[in-house]
């Protein structure tokens, strides 16, 4: 998969700018002497659209379409790292610090090409959960559950 970088950049900032403007129109814009909450987001949104126009212009006039494209060979590292973060976020309230640590370590294990063996993974999970449990739960008393 490959996409033109300027095109993608332009589309991203165009949609961000459009989103800002759309949200800002729902807020009061106010007057110069008493600016409303919508004024600043509106200005930012408009500037974002202007910037996106520059990127889109670059995309149209680019002489070498092959230069400046991105190619994503594998989305696996990103997907698995995000999954690991998400799993930790969801599980920590329900299952506590220890189990979510184990979950995070186990999922993130798959993110790289070079993977830990299962035994080292288990050891790493055990050591890290003991460490964070001791430090953050026992000593520093963060308001976290340790266990379900």
């Amino acid at each position: 998969m490959s996409l033109s970088k300027p095109l993608l950049s332009g589309l991203i900032f165009l949609s961000l700018g459009g989103f800002m403007i759309a949200h800002a129109t729902g807020l009061r814009l106010g007057t110069v002497s008493a600016m409303g909450p919508g004024f600043f987001p509106m200005v930012i949104g408009i500037l974002m659209c202007l910037v996106s126009a520059v990127f889109l212009g670059q995309a149209c006039t680019s002489k070498h379409p092959a230069v400046g494209t991105i190619s994503v060979a594998s989305v696996r590292p990103l997907l698995l790292v995000i999954t690991a973060l998400g799993a930790f976020a969801i599980s920590i309230d329900k299952f506590g610090l220890i189990l979510s640590t184990v979950l995070l370590v186990t999922i993130s294990r798959f993110a790289g090409d070079e993977r830990l063996g299962w035994l080292p993974t288990a050891v790493l999970a055990a050591v890290l959960s003991a460490f964070v449990g001791y430090l953050f739960w026992y000593v520093l008393k963060l308001p976290l559950q340790l266990w379900p």
Binding site: V81, A84, A89, I90, I92, L104, S108, P120, L128, L142
Partner: peptide, 24 residues
């Protein structure tokens, strides 16, 4: 690195949690 990055991710999660004490 295969030992390092899971540990970094874990500490980042706990650090981010500890700012406001919320999982959101």
């Amino acid at each position: 690195y295969k030992l390092l990055y899971p540990s970094i991710l874990l500490f980042i999660c706990i650090g981010v949690f500890s700012i406001n004490n919320r999982t959101f």
